[in-house]
Design a protein around this nucleic acid. Structure first.
Lengths: 125, 125
DNA sequence: ATGCTATTGATAACTTATTATCAATTAATC
DNA sequence: GATTAATTGATAATAAGTTATCAATAGCAT
């Protein structure tokens, strides 16, 4: 892209300020809070551009559409709340020595996805 | 289902003998080796039935269609070869103490997916 | 402020995986 | 072997997410 538009800024701001991966619908809603006319087509277009320019990265969970987060977050994994469906970043690493595979298999990377209840979704005592 | 058909037997045999999760196309190919007329519609129908009867389970990887494996395998995780695209079972566990999340987050379950090269797909030295 | 053209918004089209349809086939019973 | 209804095969239909289309809008340079 060559022009600085309100839509593009709103989308990148939404992702940048979320602190967790956002779905396209979450990005649309957050963007429309700033630019009410924002359309889902522009969201997809802009996500594609921002991804190509390495500002953001897709976060893939099994059976779900891609979410997006800023690239500079470094290695981490993800926690999905089974109640509110939000995904959170977990900034911890697993010791690679804990990842056992048969000899002759070589690990290049791995994804760890945790499922459970986030702090806001604990069952009432 | 109420009848014992060659198609159903071929599909369940394929999954049972594979020793790893199979995609619908792999199941179709393996089944057609026994029943050449086997159609993809029958594969999907039978997978649905076998899943409902708990003979098999879907294996979900991010961004990919479900694969299927036998249910009795117990807890384990999966390794996908980036060269041949096959998925293998890894019968190891992670120590739960290695899974750190913020306080007030409660883990219910997790998926660990490894990516790399399987023993048959190592780069030539 | 004007003009040019990239970008947007609305929606149709597309994609890939899966499911529904229905005539033909076949397993199970007699 | 004939009967009958469940199952199959071929293909159309569906679903959900994403992309393409194109007239209208709005950045940016002048």
């Amino acid at each position: 892209m060559e022009r600085n538009t309100r839509q593009r800024n709103a989308i990148l701001d939404a992702i940048s300020e979320a602190g967790r991966p956002l779905s396209t619908q979450e990005i649309l809603a957050a963007g429309q809070a700033v630019v009410p006319s924002l359309s889902i087509a522009t969201v997809y277009r802009t996500l594609k551009d921002l991804t190509a320019e390495s500002w953001i990265l897709p976060v893939k969970l099994p059976g779900e559409a891609d979410r997006y987060e800023m690239t500079q977050l470094g290695d981490h994994y993800h926690f999905k709340c089974s109640a509110c469906s939000r995904v959170f970043d977990i900034h911890e690493r697993i010791k690679k020595s804990n990842l056992l595979v048969p000899r002759d298999f070589v690990i290049e990377k791995y994804d760890l996805i945790l499922y459970g209840r986030c702090s806001e979704c604990q069952p009432k005592p």
